[in-house]
Amino acid sequence: MGRRAQIDNLHGWLFISPAIVIFTVFIFAPMGVAFFISLQKWNMLSPMRFVGLANYVKMIGSDHFWNSVRISMLYVLGTVPVSIGLAMIFAIMLNTIVHGIAFFRIMIYLPVVTSMAAAAIVFQYIFEPTFGLANYVLDVVGLERMMWLNDPNQALVAVVIVGIWKRVGYNTIILLAGLQSIPTYYYEAATIDGASRMQMIRKITIPLLSPVTFFVTVMQIIASLKVFTSIVIMTNGGPARGTDVLPYFLYKNAFEYHKMGYASAVAYFLFGAIFIFTLAQFRFGEKRVHYQ
């Protein structure tokens, strides 16, 4: 390597070093430590005791763990299609309006930058069964009142609604950027050929938007698998474990039951699940994605 190349190389390392340091200290090192802890029995007070894979074995055999896996899957199924579908509709609408786009963009993005903790407290009031806005709306449209956060099944619906509310703006903005990058001459050509508006959406917009849709879907699934703040504030995983998603389950085991080893094992399961999910999406999803 010549001197010039060596200096270039050094510059390269220098430029990425802040990122490497931050990733190492806050991501890779804790990941390594977590794996180590997952092989121990440890309550943060008494000394650690090596137990091998016992925590993983216990996890696989635990009904409560599988309940959390199920709840997390339901949460993903509840949030992902709706928040992306809605975002698609909003993005196409925003893409067609000429005036006031900045205003609507801000309105739709506001929930993303709102503190989830603060919003969750407001949503608790909204879902309050007697005086809450949610039941008022149900009354107005003539539907039956719900118990919301006080019912094990309905509580999940409530937190799914909050999850959609929180994420739809992010998805919309990304999809909107994708829409705006589709060259207008495709539409012009289609118009000349006499295509209808629906045909253009189906044959031009959706295929050309697919890389962005794919990205948004991957991000949304990861975000849904990681949901925590709304759960800890609104339901504490209850009632009767009805909203006990995996991240909350592992938090509870770590910081309330003080089972750090077991919680670390659950964390590794969650990490593995997200990893495999994402890999699978790339493997099977990419075939349906059209790059220009």
Binding site: N150, P152, G238, P239, A240, R241
Partner: peptide, 9 residues
């Protein structure tokens, strides 16, 4: 959890 399931459900 047991109480919720018994009393509420």
């Amino acid at each position: 959890e047991a109480m919720t399931r018994i009393v509420l459900q």
